[in-house]
Design a protein around this nucleic acid. Structure first.
Length: 216
DNA sequence: CAGCAGATTGACT
DNA sequence: GTCAATCTGCTGC
């Protein structure tokens, strides 16, 4: 039986501006995908076709059904979490605290409920539109949190189930590569209830970036 | 800067 | 009814 993880990534150096393909997301090492998403560019075209984008500077890995912090812990399947079981490269967006959206990238093979939460962006294209949507000027605060970046890029539940290899939203190589010394890792945010999983260092961020949701 | 209340929907960890 | 992968605006140091 052929595994989806046998899929090969494009050989040679990653090409700047190239949209990431299925093979990037479909790997079963979700922690690796979370790390490698740092420095990639999340792009969401606006209604007029203008690009609104930012470099990913902070991510978190969620790995159900083992991970007590995951919505898919214990194999839970509900209307909300169903998309976590889709194949890698699928978008999982949900509403939290009744008002904030959270943008996740599903990883692994279909049936494996792993995902990476994108927690912060360094704004690039469309900063003016982001400022208007966020109602503030400071570029460091436009997308420095999972709820903030969804507001800045106008990501809502209509993106749930979207395919990142298509055109409604995607992630592309930005020609940025961070080595181990440029990446920090630590416990995930807001999951104190997750017992032994609360301390797992499954949050990754670009060391020293002023665009992350928190420095430590 | 820290601490906290409030907003408000989905799931029951 | 309670709490959640959050954020803002307020109070008070």
């Amino acid at each position: 039986m052929e595994s989806i993880n046998d899929a090969k990534l494009p050989r040679g150096p990653a090409k700047k501006g190239r949209k990431l393909g299925r093979a990037f997301y479909a790997r079963d090492d979700t922690l690796l995908v979370a790390r490698e998403l740092l420095g990639k560019r999340l792009v969401v075209p606006a209604a007029d076709g203008a690009r609104v984008s930012g470099l990913i500077v902070e991510t978190e890995a969620y790995m159900g059904p083992e991970d007590k912090a995951s919505h898919a812990f214990g194999g839970r399947r509900t209307g909300r979490t169903e998309m976590m079981y889709a194949r890698g490269g699928t978008v999982y967006v949900y509403l939290i605290y009744g008002l904030h959206h959270q943008f996740n990238v599903v990883t692994g093979a279909e049936g494996v409920p792993h995902a990476v939460l994108v927690r912060a962006l360094e704004p690039e294209e469309g900063a003016a539109l982001m400022r208007a949507r966020r109602g503030l000027e400071d570029v460091r605060r436009l997308a420095s949190g999972p709820g903030k970046l969804c507001q800045a890029l106008a990501l809502d539940r209509s993106y749930n189930g979207e395919d990142l290899t298509r055109t409604r939203a995607w992630i592309e190589d930005a020609g940025r590569r961070f080595g181990p010394r440029e990446i920090a890792r630590g416990p995930r945010v807001g999951i104190d209830y997750a017992q032994e999983y609360a301390a797992r260092p499954w949050r990754f961020w670009v060391k020293g970036s002023p665009f992350v949701s928190r420095k430590a």
